[in-house]
Design a protein around this nucleic acid. Structure first.
Lengths: 197, 197
DNA sequence: GATGAAACGGAGAGAGTCTCCGTTTCGCGA
DNA sequence: TCGCGAAACGGAGACTCTCTCCGTTTCATC
């Protein structure tokens, strides 16, 4: 990451690339050709590769703002004194909707192994802010005792990946998983049927 | 699909290609180069493409045996008079373990949209055999009333995709989703911690 | 405005997918 | 067994996409 440092043309091109990438990924998904992004940004392909060493780097940059907001929100919730269960599940719902709404872009980031060479990647940041939220909710019995932070992230990741472009469906699956797919308890306030498939 | 028809050399090459593909996909994952598969099968790349029009076709062929067995098994369970809940969840566990054990090969098949041009693809076959299993289990309250067949398949697909090569972890996530990640009921017989991460 | 460093961009190498078309192999009937 | 037409094959190459090299341009500073 090199947000606001270096020469003016470098900063400008970086912004243009991220903007173009957001549009193209939104239209064609996370596997869209990088050349197309460079063209739309009005720069050469070498410049794109100089700024973003891999497709993943570019995907992370495109998602950065959304992830930042989610992390800030998690921090606020964890520091507040609201309903711990509502805080946790509300935040997970925001996360799963965000991930689903980006045509799989966030799903790619969450699903691909971060690897030791990416110490500050988004997966790890989300993992860090989710910890306190889960811990608070666990105290009030709103989380299965066996469900770790990694379990929660894995479920959210899986749900995001099968509901690309359908945030309502993602939200619904999350509520089902929360209530228990094998449960016979009808809890309509938790799992109301929604529009998406 | 063209299983046992046509000329002898065609059948032989088809078998060799599926065998080679199984090895290569297992070693390098579902994105492995197709040329490598053709080389290992001892045929030209044109022959590979003549037999399998797309990567997906080849993936489906590689998985066909496993899926066949799962479908047969589902049919037996649905026709039997065993414990409906155990039948459903045991079968889903088999499915999720199978999908996870194939280095994401089955996950790709399940996750990519089948599309109307693939009427008899594996996703649809699994969907068909899962229906009766779910219906039977629903009668005994072993399925959340709001959880449709598509919900179950979506969860299984998502779980498979985030646990490639880790069947134990996949199995564990399925049990968590079954019991309810947001549940505070400790049900160790359902969700026992297992080795995989 | 001169200068050195930083950044740029086009051309092309490399990898992979898929197709064209001349050649080989198969199966069948004589 | 042989001959023949259809079916299948395989290598060469076109096409696409990623990524790098290196000569050129732009920026910031003096």
């Amino acid at each position: 990451m090199s947000p606001a440092t270096g020469r003016a043309d470098r900063r400008r091109n970086r912004e243009r690339l991220i903007e173009a990438a957001a549009e193209v990924f939104r239209r064609d998904g996370p596997a869209a050709p990088l050349e197309e992004i460079a063209r739309r940004a009005g720069v050469g392909s070498a410049t794109l590769h100089r700024h973003f060493g891999s497709r993943r780097d570019l995907l992370e940059a495109v998602c950065a703002d959304g992830i930042d907001q989610l992390c800030v929100r998690a921090g606020e919730l964890a520091a507040g004194d609201g309903d711990a269960a509502a805080d946790l599940w509300g935040w997970l719902d925001e996360l799963v909707r965000f991930a689903s709404a980006t045509r799989g872009v966030v799903g790619v980031l969450l699903a691909e192994p971060p690897g030791p060479e990416l110490p500050v990647c988004h997966s790890n940041r989300l993992r860090d802010v989710l910890g306190p939220l889960r811990a608070r909710a666990a105290g009030s019995g709103a989380v299965h005792p066996e469900a770790t932070v990694d379990d929660l992230l894995a479920l959210v990741t899986g749900i995001s990946r099968v509901t690309e472009d359908a945030p309502e469906a993602a939200s619904r699956l999350l509520r089902l998983a929360r209530a228990g797919v094998g449960s016979d308890r009808i809890s309509h306030e938790r799992v109301a049927r929604v529009g998406g498939a």
